[in-house]
Design a protein around this nucleic acid. Structure first.
Length: 201
DNA sequence: TATACGATCACCT
DNA sequence: GGTGATCGTATAC
């Protein structure tokens, strides 16, 4: 008998972005390959990007074709291409019209690890998914998933996982332009988890 | 049309 | 710890 797995629904992503960024820690990100193979990992690191006032947010200069998904309804994937070679996966939050999203920065691999090794070309297991570009490569997430609905789509979604995981926060990684944006403690991670992208706090 | 740069990674010393 | 790769996007001309 076919078992329908539970997944996080739209009301979860509709919440305040900082709440979602914290609550995503411990949840299970699932990618189903076109051949039916499940790849999954526990989310251990996130960052919040909130509105046009946040100078580090892609919406800081208003709506464009690139960031339009962030202005749409919650629960959709915002996938962008960066540095000429990497993709990054975000989850859109808050009501449609307000641009905000949570960047998924690191996972602890738990299903389909052999496929992740293939996608990551034999990198050590400790480096399969500890970074936003790396996890997209490990899970074969590219621009085709920009705008994908995580609440209804069969290929990418988030299942309820652990609750009450320990949470630490710090400044966001890779922010250079704006001092105020740089200072905001909007990065969340599971302390002491070996799959967090960087030890920097 | 031209140019500068980025929510990164891998590889070097 | 330092740096080159590599290209879509935004912005300026």
């Amino acid at each position: 008998m076919l078992r329908i797995m539970a997944r996080l629904e739209r009301s979860f992503f509709l919440q305040d972005t900082l709440t979602v960024a914290r609550a995503l820690l411990g949840q299970r990100l699932v990618r189903v390959l076109e051949n039916g193979q499940r790849l999954a990992g526990i989310i251990v690191e996130t960052e919040a990007y909130i509105g046009e006032e946040d100078k580090a947010c892609h919406a800081a200069h208003g709506r464009t074709a690139r960031n339009a998904v962030m202005y749409g309804p919650p629960g959709h994937a915002y996938v962008y291409f960066i540095y000429g070679m990497h993709y990054c996966l975000n989850v859109v939050t808050e009501p449609a019209g307000f641009p905000a999203a949570v960047l998924i920065r690191a996972l602890e691999p738990c299903e389909g690890i052999e496929w992740m090794r293939l996608h990551r070309h034999g990198r050590p297991d400790s480096e399969l998914t500890n970074g936003p570009g790396r996890l997209c490569q490990a899970l074969a997430i590219g621009r085709a998933f920009n705008g994908y609905d995580l609440c209804t789509g069969p290929l990418l979604f988030i299942e309820p996982g652990h609750t009450n995981v320990p949470v630490a926060c710090s400044q966001r990684v890779g922010i250079s332009a704006d001092e105020l944006a740089k200072e905001r403690p909007w990065r969340f991670f599971v302390p002491d988890n070996p799959f967090v992208s960087t030890l920097k706090c």
